[in-house]
Nucleic acid binder design. Structure first.
Lengths: 168, 168
DNA sequence: ATTAACTTTCAAAATATTTTGAAAGTTATA
DNA sequence: TATAACTTTCAAAATATTTTGAAAGTTAAT
């Protein structure tokens, strides 16, 4: 297999994986393209390579920036904006974990907290089951949340530092 | 808040979370309904409660069964099938991890293995960057894969056993 | 202040996913 | 073996998501 074909396959696979995990396929593809590009790319180049429209490229890039996965770069004396992706896999994983925690985990915990407070007849099977499921899930979610917080904060934490080493 | 309202909110929230993570909203909702139901439910009852069609209910339930989250139950002397969800959050998390590993992680690793083999000019920036990104992601994916395997196998493993206790 | 190079917006169009429901299929019981 | 109770299928319809592209907006340089 030659590089251009391999590049295409990587972009396609990354896009598919993204869409299976609730991330817009094009966003994942643009990210993949930037990951394998040694240099910053312009909107124009991204449009060209992935055959997407200007509007789509623009919105997707803003999204990637809001996820902290891509940064805008300016070049002296040029009007064009350049886009560059951090290529450190650990940073990428951290950033995704951080954002999903903020965007999805925290809100669901807020709801589960509310629902945990619901009171009912202690003989009522329906109430007992509801309560057990909700509080159990809430507990698990809070543990995941706390763990992520610790992990994300802490390269200084000896315990997680040693876990990280296993993954790097 | 009263139980029926709370139940509705839980189902809605679970559905939303699911769809954010690439799981069909209805599938997540049916799962949520079963999680808060003390008894097995029939297709009829699920259709009724969630206002979905017979076809949808049937397919969704098959899916949930294929994910190992729901089981069919027969009652002596009855033609109807009943559906019941395991309510142990740890089992649910395990099951989801197991399935997503099989369905998504393993296939992507296969592709990354292929792409890692691509050869190129050692001076070619494009090749260097492609190769670095792909092999790095491959390494991370394989580590996650190995870790999941160990975790899923092993309550007998002293290390993970102690980690699990933090979450339960 | 005007131009030109570039970016952003967003309503409409295209595409993808999900849902419906009626017909076909299955199987326990009489 | 016929019936009736139930389940499954799948093409078409509904819905949701993504993408387009032209117009509007911005801004650096003259």
């Amino acid at each position: 297999m030659q590089l251009p074909e391999a590049k295409g396959k990587f972009i396609e696979a990354w896009g598919k994986l993204g869409s299976e995990w609730g991330i817009n396929r094009t966003m994942a593809q643009v990210h993949a393209l930037l990951l394998v590009s040694p240099n910053e790319l312009t909107t124009e180049e991204i449009m060209e390579e992935l055959k997407i429209s200007r509007g789509n490229a623009n919105m997707t890039l803003r999204d990637l920036i809001s996820w902290g996965l891509v940064e805008k770069q300016h070049k002296a004396g040029e009007r064009k904006e350049y886009f560059y992706a951090d290529k450190d896999t650990w940073n990428i994983a951290r950033q995704v974990a951080k954002e999903r925690r903020k965007r999805e985990l925290d809100p669901i915990i807020k709801i589960l907290d509310e629902l945990s407070k619901v009171e009912g007849e202690s003989k009522d099977e329906a109430f007992i089951t509801f309560n057990k499921s909700v509080t159990d899930i809430n507990k698990l979610a809070k543990n995941v949340d706390k763990t992520l917080e610790t992990m994300l904060k802490a390269e200084e934490n000896w315990f997680w530092k040693s876990i990280f080493k296993m993954f790097k």
